[in-house]
Design a protein around this nucleic acid. Structure first.
Lengths: 136, 136
DNA sequence: ATGGACCCTCCCATCATGGGAAGGTCAAGG
DNA sequence: CCTTGACCTTCCCATGATGGGAGGGTCCAT
């Protein structure tokens, strides 16, 4: 049933194919996010298309901001045919809530900063409402 | 411990007065953000109202999200009577731009995640558009 | 055989913060 | 006076995700 070619490649090529740096691929392996890679006799890591598929999964999850520990769970769910989609959705929704909390925090900072900056002349003189605010 | 009358206090009290942990106050001193504190004969750090004023300045700046290196500059400007407010305003505006960039990044993640979560049934079955997306 | 482009491991840095160990100091109450 | 507990000290380690770089081995094409 396996009809795909099993092209093997070194870590540099896997890195290019997945947009994850070789440094990070080694790191993910070291923390057990990835299984230990195959090695050549001389110790070079070898990756096949399946490995690259996993790497891309991780890359996409990282690009959505998922922390590595959550990605560890997502990978397990991905591989588990008896998973429930509610588990995955729950992880996504918690992550969304996390992001929205951080966004709100930063937006509040931006509002305050813009207010302060708006009142600052921004010229050669020392008077500055921004510093006045920080000084309390 | 010799405590003079002009409102000198230990690090724990300075921490309470400034809402910066004792741990962080020591750290700020170690990286030169704060000058070395006075010490009692037995080695306890001592802080006066002026020091607490500086600590509150730092606390307020941190609460607006300024990184410590920028706060180092802000402190110098605060103490410099020949500063130009444009310098301060510039720092604030760069910080605003930084925050807005990060906010936009996270909002983009949230948009994608909400879209995916919206299409996920979130039930007992394994089918999951979120994992399908991550898997590419 | 040589050079350059890979690969390996190991250590260190970032950024801001906290935890905790091991030990010294101080004030209050028995 | 001595104990107790709440402070204080320094030092090391951890977080999360990533990168830099040293020192050394491997592979391939010229």
């Amino acid at each position: 049933m396996v009809m795909s070619m099993n092209r093997e490649m070194t870590i540099g090529q896997a890195a290019k194919s997945s947009a994850i740096s070789a440094k990070m691929i080694r790191h993910y392996e070291s923390i057990g996010l990835l299984p230990k890679a195959q090695r050549t006799e001389s110790g070079y890591r070898l990756y096949d298309d399946n490995d690259v598929h996993t790497l891309r999964f991780i890359q996409r999850a990282r690009s959505l901001g998922f922390p590595l520990e959550t990605i560890r769970t997502l990978l397990a769910l991905w591989r588990n045919r008896r998973r429930s989609s509610s588990h995955v959705k729950d992880l996504a929704e918690r992550h969304i809530a996390d992001l929205e909390r951080k966004i709100a925090e930063m937006q509040s900072m931006v509002r305050s900063l813009k207010h302060l900056a708006h009142h600052c002349h921004g010229d050669d003189r020392p008077e500055c409402p921004i510093l006045d605010d920080l000084a309390g």
